[in-house]
Design a protein around this nucleic acid. Structure first.
Length: 772
DNA sequence: CAGTGAGCGAGCTTCCGCTTGACTT
């Protein structure tokens, strides 16, 4: 029996550490928090100093039982959860849940998983820092109070099953406000004049491209300048060179890994985390949920060796990076390969790609600066005051650029200047072509998942472990949708001077194309408007920062946690009560126009099931007619014509097999109804003008699929079917799983009925959210 | 998945952070 029980948060970490500690130590994991506020109710006793009602989380009962048993058998229990607010609380909850004897219990912390660090920790135990625990309790209780009082208010005033919280509501706000900025953005155009020159000097003949650094406000101004260029002579007025350097980016944190994997590999935030988890579990990288840019001395040594052997000593420049993130807790190392001499790994393609990215970023972070030389050439135009400029950049020493270059969100923000041909003062240039192109100002970019994470980190909102879940929550609640949008064609003017001729052309370019961007939905916009109107203090971008400051004071022993909560809750709860009383139902109703046939008003608004159109008033005797908006339509942009189309459903499209086919638009999109069965229309089908032939085709397609998915069919209501999770038995629309040792091909009717009777094969009545 | 929408009212939804598998129709 082991004398010592060490408890860490993650099982992968437990495995590693056990190797360092030897036989006397058993290392186990708590799998994160084991206790949390009661899920059934508020979980906080408002009347009684906000005493939290903690429960052992249902999914943690098993591990708690096991740890309790092991703890009772051990002589010393070492609580080795992370050294941050949450980690301290985990240790404290463990002492309570496992009923640990204080005399036998020691709290230890380490920042890196090395033998030295861990042995050092064992030699320097401490006790649980109750102030830090209290800071966590304040954080937890505040989030619960905000979430569980705001959400029910939304159910009453806006729509059921909505949610609000300190983090998610601000994330939605960012996206809604960015969309407003874009809507209000006035595009302006100006003219950019560029030139291509021929240059002949002692060093030979070459080409040089240059541009006028200031833009021309109008076509006339650009044209006037280009006319002058037609008669002008061009010569080099000055050549300036100056040294410059570039430094590598810091090693990855969760947030920067998500951003780079998104830009360079096109991964979603959730995908990045899934793949990183796999790499972590197989021991290939260090922990992937971290806000630290710090590398251990061990890692820096490994990097130094690897860089020396691959590129030579002059490429090594070890560096310690400092975090810039607000509220960083730095309980872990930066994300890096466990062994830096492994340049590639075994694994699937996505693991290999992500690993390579992490390897490059880590190695580059310990490499020399790149030494550059920047050159600016000014070209005089003999007939005009304005000059042309050419910018060049040469790499004198590549340094870290040999391995890795961080990418940017805005691809054309910083165009890499190329290499310039050799030029000197007084060189004469011959113009080949001069162009004046109309350019447009651009609205601020929409957020991607990854750029939203970066913004949240900048505001100190959310933690590495919650970035991905938060982004998924706001999409699940349908506050925000991630999608592509087609661009539109835009005409622009282009003036070209070639030889002695000036041409004015009208060209076309595609603009506004969006790929995997976050757009607010009608519901997101409405909920945000409601929250801003009544709870601007909670939605304030600085709310988290200001409560964090108070949590720090609690952690420092300068404040008592439930007094802080009391000061917050009093006014907050009054706000809730006030809003409950004063705010009317918030539906975002908008009068769109009048139905030309009936003369009734047509409104659009948010209903119980989402955006809808309404014909007629609700407060008259005549019942109004309703129609849900189609997917992709929005209250903001839908037109009267489009809404009138919606009221044409359900419509008959003809008969098939002597029964009517009806097309309508339901909760899950347009469908054909035939013999009481539903057939969803395809993406390319337009329900307005679908032909009877196409409707029949859709019906037949689905029937064919059903046949393909049927393994066996007994009586009409007893079937063995192929599903998403393998074969199953369907009896009168109820589904039953097939035991593993049964071959579904060989099932008989009696066996099926018998399986259906066995209670362990019946589907669990688990609550499943209807929203995807 | 299920094809609604007024109003009535029962009974449901909900937060953030720390961790992974078990399980789904």
């Amino acid at each position: 029996m082991a004398k010592n029980l060490v408890i860490v948060e993650s099982p992968a970490k437990a495995k590693t550490i056990e190797g360092f500690l030897g036989k006397e130590f058993l290392v186990k994991s708590s799998f994160g928090h084991v206790m949390d506020l009661s899920k059934k109710n508020l979980g906080v006793d408002i009347e009684n100093d906000f005493v939290p009602n903690y429960e052992i989380s249902t999914e943690k009962k098993k591990v708690v039982t096991e740890l309790k048993k092991l703890a009772s058998e051990a002589e010393v229990i070492w609580l080795a959860s992370d050294e941050d607010r949450e980690g301290e609380a985990i240790s404290w909850h463990l002492t309570n849940a496992l009923k640990l004897d204080e005399a036998k219990t020691k709290r230890i912390v380490f920042h890196e998983i090395t033998k030295n660090a861990i042995q050092n920790a064992i030699e320097n135990p401490r006790s649980i820092d109750k102030n830090l625990v209290d800071a966590q309790q304040a954080r937890r209780v505040l989030d619960r109070l905000v979430g569980f009082e705001l959400s029910p208010l939304l159910w009453k005033k806006v729509k059921p099953a909505l949610s609000a919280g300190r983090v998610q509501s601000v994330a939605v706000r960012l996206i809604v406000e960015r969309e407003e900025e874009i809507k209000n953005f006035k595009t302006e155009s100006n003219f950019r004049v560029t030139a291509l020159f021929n240059i002949q000097n002692a060093k030979g003949r070459s080409k040089l491209s240059a541009e006028v650094p200031t833009r021309f406000k109008s076509k006339e101004e650009a044209l006037e300048f280009i006319r002058k260029c037609k008669e002008a002579g061009f010569s080099v007025k000055s050549v300036e060179t100056k040294p410059a350097k570039k430094s590598p980016a810091a090693p990855f944190t969760t947030s920067t890994l998500q951003q780079e994997a998104s830009r360079k590999l096109g991964y979603s935030v959730a995908n990045t985390m899934r793949v990183a988890q796999q790499l972590y579990e197989s021991g290939k990288i260090t922990y992937m949920r971290t806000d630290s840019v710090n590398l251990s001395n061990l890692a820096m040594g490994m990097a130094q060796d690897e860089i020396t052997s691959l590129y030579g000593e002059n490429y090594v420049q070890t560096r310690k990076y400092k975090t810039k993130a607000k509220g960083a807790q730095e309980a872990h190392e930066a994300i890096r390969p466990t062994y830096l001499n492994n340049r590639d790994i075994d694994g699937d393609a996505s693991q290999k790609k992500l690993y390579e990215l992490i390897w490059k970023r880590t190695i580059a972070s310990q490499m020399s600066d790149a030494i550059l030389e920047k050159t600016n050439v000014t070209i005089d135009v003999s007939t005009a005051k304005k000059d042309f400029f050419a910018k060049g950049e040469i790499v004198k020493f590549d340094g870290f650029l040999k391995v890795y270059m961080e990418s940017k969100d805005d691809e054309n923000a910083d165009e890499m200047a190329g290499v310039l041909p050799p030029v000197k003062n007084g060189d004469i240039l011959n113009r080949l072509e001069i162009r004046g192109e109309e350019r447009f100002t651009q609205h601020p970019p929409r957020y991607t998942e990854a750029s939203l994470v970066r913004k949240m980190e900048e505001l100190g909102i959310g933690r590495p472990s919650t970035y991905a879940p938060t982004i998924s929550t706001i999409q699940k609640r349908e506050y925000v949708i991630k999608e592509d949008r087609d661009g539109v064609n835009r005409k622009y003017h282009c003036i070209i001077l070639k030889d002695e001729e000036i041409k004015d052309e009208l060209k076309t370019e595609k603009t506004g194309f969006e790929k995997s961007k976050l757009f607010p939905t009608d519901i997101g916009t409405l909920v945000n408007k409601f929250l801003i109107q009544y709870f601007d203090n909670i939605l304030d971008y600085n709310f988290t920062a200001s409560v964090e400051k108070e949590f720090d004071e609690i952690a420092g022993g300068k404040k008592v946690w439930n007094e802080m909560i009391r000061e917050f809750y009093g006014p907050f709860h009054n706000q809730i009560e006030d809003t409950l009383e004063k705010a009317k139902k918030f539906s975002g109703e908008k009068l769109l126009g009048v139905d030309p046939v009936s003369g009734k008003n047509i409104f659009v608004k948010i209903g119980r099931y989402g955006p809808l159109a309404q014909m007629g008033e609700t407060d008259t005797d005549d019942k109004p007619k309703f129609a849900g908006l189609k997917k992709g339509q929005s209250i903001e942009t839908v037109t009267l014509e489009e809404v009138l189309e919606l009221f044409k459903f359900p419509r008959q499209v003809g008969a098939y097999e002597e029964e009517e086919m009806t097309v309508a638009i339901g909760r899950f999109g347009p469908y054909v109804l035939h013999k009481k069965k539903f057939y969803s229309l395809g993406k390319e089908d337009d329900p307005v003008d679908i032909t009877p032939e196409r409707a029949v085709e859709i019906i037949e397609e689905k029937r064919k699929k059903e046949v393909e998915n049927t393994i066996k069919e007994f009586e009409q209501d007893v079937k063995v079917l192929k599903g998403r999770f393998g074969p199953y038995i369907s009896i009168k629309k109820k589904n039953f799983k097939i035991p593993k040792d049964v071959n579904p091909e060989e099932l008989t009717l009696e066996e099926c009925l018998k399986i259906a009777e066995d209670p362990k094969n019946t589907p669990k009545k688990r609550y499943v959210r209807k929203k995807k």
